[in-house]
Design a protein around this nucleic acid. Structure first.
Lengths: 352, 352
DNA sequence: ATAAAAAATGTAAACCTTTACATTTGAGAC
DNA sequence: GTCTCAAATGTAAAGGTTTACATTTTTTAT
């Protein structure tokens, strides 16, 4: 609405050239103390501040980052984002958040590939780096178009990808360490005496799900327990999915005494389903969540869950990205190992 | 890393001037079909796409928006954001999310006013409009600096503010309709036979809290019920706060049969506190949340709550903002009225 | 007082577009 | 074969910075 003041006007008012104004702005190059004071006064007077677009154009860096995630409503992503934004802001970067609303169940929908549109947007806006925290990347089978779009993106700016690796693409790939969490949760349940432990939530064709399913099978095997396919009930990662998955599982009438839920939302949905069957947690069924979203101490029942330290993960990835952008080598804190927090929901020992 | 192709190079490769390339890019101005085809081929070949920074500079609009909120981790804000981002994206705007991490309890901290920094950032980056959804604006007493910073922001670009009105600032102020929700929730509880209803959660000095507290008192008065100060237990808007507020309330030993929680998180925390006292919901204490975050059907107990239609609010405000930016007058759907969804947590009639 | 060196300032190109205006080309009318 | 007019294309300014380089002014040494 109101056109903003430019460096030219400041220079004019001060009777100097724009170069001089630029010099005091950037504090480089000599400038007489008196001139400096005058220019600063005029800048203050007009609340002048340089146009970032022009700066970015000439400096060839925009001081902005792109973050691509499917659903900021999901605590996993919002936690991650919070850390990323905080660190970015501290380094004077602004963050463009692209909420791709990716749902693998809509795989066949037309709109799935909006991610490629976002990639192009990032390229056009000349963001200095991109963080990809989920979306198509989470699928077992990533489309050709996606790969080539990502390839193009990553060969033009630094890109950090969380959760999976793809060959021949110049991104920094960061593992989510999803397996370890499953393993410690399972071992805990076993230590409590459980022998038939169900796997609840998560969706087929999703990388993480597959990864965890593998960890589940491997851990069972290592502990010499039988893998029972009927004890696996997939669906998706939200509350209603937890409900559905648990309900389906219970209907199967295959006996089990404990559940491994993919995250707290799934766990809460599952608790509801269990209750609806007249059973309770942990008395009838023990429950552990693989991914802590909430402070389980405040839930009913107090929920045992694996703290994957999503905050730490956020700090880690943003450091990697900033390092790549600024070509620095600031030491980054290694992401913490997942840690099981045992609470009420898994605490009743099973009578064998 | 890899320098990107510019319009100049495309022009050179085609043996035409950049003006011609620009014309085919923007589809305006005549250009011979053969030339056009050739240019398009070369553009395709190099995956050329115009530099948005340069475009924004000359077009004087950046196709980007700023969204300022205190905590994207809070479902109220993330829901709002999702709608805003979706609509913005559909209109080819990108969204810069500023997470101000505002906590009024840290009022005395030095870092509180990071919002002013974000305001300046928005101005510098030449975003086309800003949405302010919370932060200092939520305080009863807004600082002078904040007001003047907001004033400056709003007199240079369109700004939509959710939740409160400030005099003499050229923003579009949108009410949150917080009172109505309190009122219908209370009336519901009264209809269930409750006469002593506690007010739980929310923080002092916060506009919404105050607003709701007023609605609480007014509704009580209208229904000829006594206002008992000891039944008001403030804290903040998160789960632990719900726990604390409810625990404090219970300790007071002032009898009550129902609770009005400020939102689902507060409600969940309160449920936990109630349980920890050996009481239960709704048998001993009925509970309604004023602001639905989760689908209460999946919670334990199934939580009665007021659906404030945050999705609709998001759609509404982004439409207002886009209209202001584009100087259009696209009809906007009025935000929906809050609607109470009655579930288990408030359903046991009190025996008088 | 003068030369040399240092400090202060200015000029202009570059960053990449868009677009008003100018110029060239070609077709159709006579 | 001119002339007119429209279509196609080109030129250059503008948008707001930064910065290498050039120029001017001041200081210091002699």
């Amino acid at each position: 609405m109101k056109p903003s003041v430019t460096i030219t006007e400041i220079a004019k008012e001060c009777g100097v050239s724009i170069a001089t104004v630029s010099r005091v702005l950037n504090g480089k190059g000599p400038v007489a103390p008196s001139t400096k004071a005058q220019i600063e006064a005029v800048i203050e007077k007009y609340h002048y501040s340089p146009n970032s677009l022009a700066q970015s154009l000439v400096r060839r860096q925009s001081q902005s980052l792109g973050v691509i995630m499917p659903d900021i409503t999901n605590p996993y992503f919002s936690t991650l984002f919070t850390e990323v934004e905080r660190a970015a802001h501290n380094s004077s970067f602004s963050v463009i958040l692209c909420n791709t609303m990716f749902r693998s169940s809509s795989l066949l929908d037309q709109k799935v590939s909006s991610e490629e549109v976002y990639f192009q947007m990032m390229l056009d806006k000349k963001v200095d780096g991109v963080l990809i925290a989920g979306g198509q990347i989470d699928l077992m089978e990533v489309s050709e178009e996606y790969i080539s779009a990502l390839s193009r993106l990553a060969s033009s700016i630094p890109v950090v990808v969380i959760g999976r690796t793809l060959p021949d693409i110049p991104c920094t790939f960061v593992d989510k360490e999803t397996r370890e969490g499953v393993s410690i949760a399972l071992k805990h349940l076993m230590a409590q005496g459980h022998r038939r432990i169900a796997f609840v939530g998560g969706e087929e064709h999703i990388y993480t799900t597959d990864f965890r399913l593998k960890a589940y099978r491997e851990t069972l095997e290592k502990m010499h327990l039988e893998y029972v396919p009927e004890l696996v009930s997939l669906s998706d990662y939200y509350m209603p999915d937890g409900y559905t998955a648990a309900a389906v599982l219970l209907e199967r009438q295959v006996p089990f005494t404990a559940m491994l839920a993919m995250n707290d939302n799934v766990a809460l949905g599952a608790v509801r389903a269990i209750r609806d069957q007249g059973l309770s947690v942990p008395e009838d069924i023990a429950l552990v969540s693989c991914d802590q979203f909430y402070n389980g101490d405040y839930l009913l029942p107090r929920l045992s869950s694996v703290d994957r330290h999503n905050n730490a993960l956020g700090k880690y990835v943003i450091q990697l990205l900033l390092n790549a952008i600024q070509e620095t080598d600031t030491p980054v804190d290694a992401p913490l190992l997942p840690q099981l927090i045992v609470r009420e929901s898994s605490l009743l020992r099973v009578r064998k």
